[in-house]
Design a protein around this nucleic acid. Structure first.
Lengths: 254, 254
DNA sequence: GGCTCCAACTGGTCATACCACTTGACCAAA
DNA sequence: TTTGGTCAAGTGGTATGACCAGTTGGAGCC
């Protein structure tokens, strides 16, 4: 087993995660009030500033409504939380949430082609060379993890070329959810990142400045893996429903 | 002038905004180090916990890299910030950023139809009635602000029906950026929300469970206003470039 | 030169005190 | 009954000062 960076969890981090879990798992429903900062500090055995910092961070994510003098109430995260909550929703209690994963794949398939079209419209003269270099790297390696890294870089360049802040920020948020699980997802994504040819076709379309061809090419890059993975996830969900075998990763948290 | 809720800005809020502005405006470039917490507290004339809270909130948004024992460095927000940063980018120094606004409109046009298609696929039996009620309300009023509120509710229902966490969170983030400027945007969006007929066609397609028709109908709802607004924004940007008249709203901040 | 070690930073955490605000109960006046 | 005032208790907001825990870089040793 390779050495890994030490995880360093600060006290506020810990508090944040605990309260977040309570909220996301619905233990404390929307509209309900949280214990006071002093009380939480006492119960968790930490100082009030630590609790305070965690709660303020949650408020910033629109998960809590903190009112001076009044009670702190839980907001409906499904209605107010932003895309930055995605990583927390994707892996809960140490295991991947299938419906969230499916949703990410769907969104990717829906948005990717549009971004590619914009990139074709707006990409500068040097874009083609950059993309080609990137695909060359992708084609040159056999390692699935490394291929994924190159594929991410490829899309990073495409998003940049699309010259759209919103898509840029969306991409960043999605990457933040995706990267931590990159190694675990390597086998699942192997099918997609192994198709260097499809990436080359897409590169050619973008370089040629042809939006609609680029859109179609991007669809051909993303659709196969999306389809098979969504299918696999659905089968998995069905299996869980009909035969709820306890997941060991999930159980150990209890 | 109607009465408005009092804005209450806490000390950490103020610090957060100031540091954020420095970062977003590029005063402190990516990779540069921030003054120490103690020093910042001294310079800003506030306590260290207040500074600390602001910095931690920025770190949570991936705008800063805070290391125990080491210096706090600024990260490249264009590469790491998530969609939740959008509101801060849309209105800077009190005025709307045209390129960000354009980007929001583009993203809306790219994503809305896909969401509508998903909603058509997955919407339950009661969805049609809900959407119809909503469009009835929209058609019943002459007030542009009220119409926008109903239009937002309409899309809220559609996003719900699409049953996709990612699109849900994206919608929340976009709404968070959009709602504060809702009144200011009323005239600009009047063209779109006045087209109750287009919304009815979309409602019918979704109710009928026909994804491709819904996709096309959503496009017809969103495209006209998007096209004209993007054109207007481009003209505005050109005018600013050729004749950089100071914006009074912008100047008063200096 | 290269290594060790230590002092001077940095952020992390805590305890405590006090200020500012909200809430609800109570009570007096209209 | 309603309205408004008062007040105490509880909440979040802020400040201070202390100490712990890492990182960094240079002084000094080998």
């Amino acid at each position: 087993m390779p050495l890994q960076p030490v995880v360093r969890r600060s006290v506020p981090d810990e508090v944040f995660d605990q309260v977040l879990a309570e909220v996301v798992d619905g233990e404390i429903g929307a509209g309900e009030t949280l214990p006071s900062e002093r009380r939480l500090a006492e119960v968790l055995g930490v100082s009030r500033p630590a609790v305070r910092e965690a709660l303020q961070r949650m408020a910033q994510t629109r998960l809590l409504d903190v009112r001076h003098g009044g009670a702190t109430t839980v907001r409906d995260f499904r209605r107010y939380a932003g895309l930055d909550l995605l990583p927390q929703l994707l892996v809960r209690r140490g295991s991947l949430d299938a419906s969230v994963a499916r949703s990410i794949l769907e969104a990717r398939l829906a948005i990717g082609p549009s971004v590619a079209a914009l990139a074709a419209e707006r990409g500068g003269a040097t874009l083609g060379a950059l993309l080609t270099d990137c695909v060359d790297l992708l084609a040159a390696t056999d390692d699935d993890v490394e291929r994924q890294v190159h594929a991410l870089t490829f899309w990073d360049l495409v998003v940049d070329a699309a010259d759209s802040v919103v898509f840029r920020l969306m991409f960043n948020s999605l990457r933040a959810a995706y990267e931590p699980a990159l190694e675990a997802l390597a086998p699942a994504m192997a099918e997609e990142v192994g198709q260097a040819g499809a990436y080359r076709v897409l590169t050619a379309a973008i370089s040629a400045g042809d939006p609609e061809t680029a859109r179609a090419a991007a669809d051909r890059v993303l659709r196969p893996a999306t389809a098979s993975l969504v299918g696999a996830l659905a089968a998995l969900a069905d299996a869980v429903i009909s035969d709820p075998t306890p997941d060991p990763d999930l159980e150990e948290q209890r």
